[in-house]
Design a protein around this nucleic acid. Structure first.
Lengths: 239, 239
DNA sequence: CAGTGGTCTAGACCACTTT
DNA sequence: AAGTGGTCTAGACCACTGG
C-alpha cells in the first residue's frame, strides 16, 4: 500500500465533510492553526491540503477571515488534473462505455511526442462518454503505454474510476497534467457520440498526464460539448 | 513600494536567465538546496518560486534529477493567471487597441455576479486584440470597478501591460483567477476583430481575477482563434 | 553512493479582518 | 486586541536518480 500522505488524508476528510453537508456554502472551515492542532500536523501540511481543495473549487481563502466553502460550480472543473469525478464535483455523473481496453499500436499522427521505448511498447486504448443529467457532455479516449501494467486489459472496465483503479492495482498515481485546448467544429464521429449536429462548435482537449512512475505518461483526448456546461478552473499564486 | 517577496525576486531572476538563454532547453537549474544557499533563503521559499516557473511552463521538475528547463510551448499558456505577456512566453506578441479605457455602466447581462457596491460604483472598460507573428489570436475586453483607482481612465493605455500598470500605479496585484471556457461560433463582431469568417469555431473565456485588495475583482472576456495556437496550461499536485 | 525533489516539523513575523 | 491566512526560517527524513 502506498501510505497516503497526511495532506491527502486531510484533503479527503474536509472534502467529504463538505460534500456531506457538514459545512455548507459560506461556512468557514476551522483555521489552519486549528486544523494543524486537531490533526497534530504542521501548518504547512494543512496548507498543502487546503491548496488542493481550493484548486478543485471547494473553498476560497480570505486573508484575515479564513477558508470559506464555495458555491458549487456551474461549470465542470475538469481543467485541473484531478480525475473527472473529482472535478465534476457536486453534479451527478454517468459513464457510457464506447470501447473497452484493447491493445493497439500508437496512432500514427499522435498529438504528443513519444519516446522510443514508449512507442515500441505499444498502446492500450479505451474510450467512454460522460453524461450529466442525461446530457452528453464529453467523449474521452485515453491512451497509455502497454508497459508494466500487467493484465490491465483484462481487469479494467471503463465504468470504473480510471485513476482509482491505477492507484489500487498498480500504486500508480497521477501527479500532474499538461493540456492544450482548441475549438473545432464537431466531425460526424464526434457528433454521433455526443448526440449533436455535425459542425457544432466543441472543445477538444489534448492531455498528457505525469505519474509517480518516472517516464510513464498517459494521454487523453477529450471532446466536450460546452453548450450547457462550460469548463472551468482556478489558479492562485500559491499552489 | 510594496516590497517584493523573496520568492518573487528569485522567480524573476530565474525566468530572466531562461529567457536570456543562460539556461537552455534541457539544462538543469541549480538544485533547490543550492538556490537556497546562494540566495540565503529557506528552501521552501525556493520551492515557491520554482512552483510559479513550473505553472508558467518554463521548467519541469524531476524527482532525483532536478528542475529542467522545458521546451517553449507551441501553445499559449494563457490559462494561468499570469498576464498575457508572461503566458505567451517566448513568442513575439503585438497588441492592437480596440477601445481605450472609458467609464460606463456594467453590462446588463454580465457573466459574473456583482455585489451591490461594485454594481453601484460603475465600470471601466477597455478592449484590445492580441497578435502573434501577424496572426490575430485573441480579442479581449476587460472590466474593472470604478473604485479607488484614481485617474485610471486618463493614465492607462491599452498597449501597456495591464497588470504591470496596476502594480506600479496602485500597488494592486493579481493573486488568482477563476475562468470558464466554452466553444462557440464566431459572431460577426468577433469575426471582424479576429479577421476570420463568421461561424468559425472559437474559444470564449470568461474570467474573474482576484487581487491583493480584498473585495476588488476584475473581469475579462476573451475570444480566441485557436486555429494556429492552442491554449494550454499545466497543473501539478504541489502548487 | 551522493544528490535531487517531495513531505513534514515547529516555530516566527507580517498584513489584514473582525470584535 | 485577537484571530486569520501569507510569507519565511532552519532544520529533518524519505523515494528516487545517477554514477
Amino acid at each position: 500500500m502506498p501510505s497516503r500522505h497526511q495532506y491527502h488524508v486531510l484533503h479527503d476528510h474536509l472534502k467529504r465533510d463538505i460534500m456531506k453537508g457538514r459545512y455548507s456554502v459560506g461556512d468557514v472551515l476551522p483555521s489552519e492553526h486549528e486544523l494543524a492542532a486537531q490533526y497534530d500536523i504542521a501548518r504547512s501540511t494543512v496548507r498543502n491540503a487546503l491548496a488542493s481543495l481550493q484548486r478543485e473549487g471547494y473553498i476560497e481563502k480570505k486573508r484575515g477571515k479564513g477558508s470559506i466553502v464555495a458555491a458549487a460550480r456551474r461549470a465542470l472543473g475538469i481543467l485541473n488534473y484531478e480525475g473527472f469525478s473529482a472535478s465534476a464535483g457536486r453534479s451527478s455523473v454517468q459513464t457510457k462505455s464506447v470501447e473497452e481496453p484493447k491493445v493497439a499500436a500508437w496512432p500514427a499522427d499522435f498529438y504528443f511526442e513519444l519516446d522510443a521505448a514508449t512507442q515500441a511498447s505499444g498502446c492500450i486504448r479505451f474510450s467512454r462518454v460522460r453524461m450529466i443529467d442525461h446530457d452528453y457532455v464529453m467523449w474521452e479516449t485515453s491512451y497509455l503505454p502497454n508497459q508494466n501494467l500487467p493484465r490491465f486489459v483484462q481487469l479494467y472496465r471503463t465504468k470504473q474510476s480510471f485513476f482509482g483503479f491505477l492507484a489500487r492495482q498498480y500504486h500508480l498515481e497521477v501527479t500532474g497534467m499538461r493540456q492544450e485546448i482548441k475549438a473545432m467544429a464537431a466531425t460526424a464521429t464526434v457528433a454521433k457520440h455526443l448526440k449533436l449536429k455535425s459542425g457544432t462548435p466543441i472543445l477538444v482537449i489534448h492531455r498528457q498526464y505525469s505519474t509517480n512512475r518516472q517516464g510513464l505518461h498517459m494521454y487523453s483526448t477529450l471532446y466536450c460539448n460546452t453548450n450547457k456546461y462550460a469548463m472551468s478552473n482556478e489558479t492562485n499564486k500559491n499552489h
